Computed example of a mutant assay.
Amino acid sequence: MKTDNILTDMVTQSDFSNVAESIRGNLSSALPKMIEYKTYLQRNVLDVATCNELDDVKNGIVNGSLMTKLIILAKSRWQSGATVDLYCLAMSVATIIKEYDWGTEYLSDKGLFSLAMQIQNA
């Protein structure tokens, strides 16, 4: 299982799935990192969100520009290039999206990989 990709390496779906399976088998190993990332994202998105974006959150209206801001913030935290960290960041973004009442589709394997690719390519 490849977990230490260099930032220039593209994470493959296979690599990502292997890491996801490993983390699900021992969630306690990655949970502190997920919590740290989620806390960072939730705090810092407030510094870049507009009033309209925050209103959309309050009203449960999906806002693409705010989602992009979350992804860019996640990318800024992905310093190691490790697939494990990318998974934890994708999960953090997905749970924030869920809390915004923007849906749960990103919590699926396909959705998490989609977020991971957006973070990687941001």
Rank of each mutant, 00 (worst) to 15 (best):
D47Q: 11
L27H: 09
V62N: 14
V48L: 12
D47R: 15
K75Q: 13
T83P: 01
A30G: 05
S29D: 13
L66I: 05
R43M: 06
T50Q: 06
S65T: 14
S29R: 14
K38E: 03
R24T: 03
D55Y: 06
I72D: 03
V45M: 11
V48F: 11
V48G: 02
Y87L: 14
S29M: 12
G64D: 13
V19I: 15
V84G: 02
S28A: 12
I72H: 08
L54P: 00
E36K: 14
V84D: 05
G81Q: 09
L54I: 06
T68Y: 10
L54H: 04
K33A: 10
L70F: 12
W78K: 05
W78H: 12
A49I: 04
I61H: 00
L70Q: 01
V48R: 07
K38Q: 11
N26H: 10
L31G: 03
G25M: 07
I61K: 12
N63Y: 07
Q79H: 13
V62H: 13
K58F: 10
Q42A: 13
G25D: 01
G25W: 11
K33L: 12
L86H: 05
L27A: 09
A49P: 02
A20Q: 08
A82C: 14
I71G: 01
V62E: 11
A74L: 08
D47M: 09
G64Y: 09
L86Q: 05
A74N: 01
E36N: 09
G81R: 09
D55W: 07
K38P: 02
S28F: 06
S65D: 12
Y40C: 07
A82I: 00
R77A: 10
I61D: 03
N18R: 12
S80H: 06
V19T: 09
L46V: 06
I61A: 07
V62R: 15
L86A: 00
N52I: 11
S76M: 08
Y37A: 00
A49N: 09
S28N: 10
G64C: 07
Q79L: 14
N18M: 11
A20V: 02
V84C: 08
E36M: 11
V84I: 15
N26E: 12
N52H: 12
R77F: 00
V62D: 03
K75L: 07
S17N: 13
L70A: 00
K38Y: 00
N44H: 13
V48T: 10
N26G: 01
I23S: 03
Q79K: 15
I72S: 08
A30P: 02
K69I: 05
E53L: 05
G25N: 10
E36Q: 15
A49T: 03
I71V: 15
D47H: 12
G25H: 05
K75E: 07
K75N: 12
C51L: 14
N18Q: 15
S17C: 06
V62P: 04
V19C: 02
S29W: 08
S65R: 12
N63I: 04
R77C: 11
Y37V: 02
N18V: 02
